[in-house]
Design a protein around this nucleic acid. Structure first.
Lengths: 98, 98
DNA sequence: AAGACATATTGACAATTGTCAAAATGTCCG
DNA sequence: CGGACATTTTGACAATTGTCAATATGTCTT
């Protein structure tokens, strides 16, 4: 009856950690970044192009997302690639957004 | 393959509105309130008992949740009962939290 | 080593947030 | 109406946030 995540998608956060994830998602620029990352990993400069903020502002938002556990970063060559770290995020967004 | 909400559970928010919902959920006290409301509607004084904040602070958080569209309020007798307004919230929380 | 490129950090500032206490509003009951 | 109860609003204040510009750090190429 209920619609649940697959077991492989479900993660178990403490209430504090869950609030931190929601807080991280609760800014238009960061939500936009997360939506770009749904299509796969992106480097900072690519994510920057998708917004209208200073590059340093994007870097700061990425740091907030990383601290909340929403994304992880990996350096490859000159670039740093960010990707989503919470599998069920697409489920969560699909439930709410357009 | 993917795990999606039922059609009846899915709602369609603009990106701004979705960010506002996440922002509203992104505070420990408000998330706690939402989790209490998962069990059904509650009046303000009941929600207040479940927290360690001033009653006026709870009222303020409820107003934030209401403005974000997360809850609705209904006056019955002396009390005002709050309930969740987003059906898939339990799905969303279930994906992330404990 | 030097230059070019990508990203992060710092500093400054206005704006927003979370909180409590006090006062105001609203609703029922005698 | 007046009093009791439930909730909201207001005012004040410290703390946090979002932003940009400037500077610093890190990585590759030559």
């Amino acid at each position: 009856m209920d619609c649940n995540c697959h077991n492989t998608e479900k993660i178990s956060l403490s209430h504090e950690a869950a609030a931190a994830v929601f807080k991280a998602l609760g800014h238009p620029v960061r939500l936009h970044i997360v939506r770009m990352l749904l299509a796969g990993e992106r480097c900072v400069c690519e994510l920057h192009k998708g917004t209208e903020r200073d590059l340093s502002t994007i870097s700061s938002h990425l740091n907030i997302l990383k601290n909340a556990g929403v994304v992880t970063a990996e350096q490859r060559g000159k670039n740093i690639y960010y990707r989503l770290a919470i599998p069920c995020l697409s489920t969560v967004l699909n439930c709410l957004v357009d």
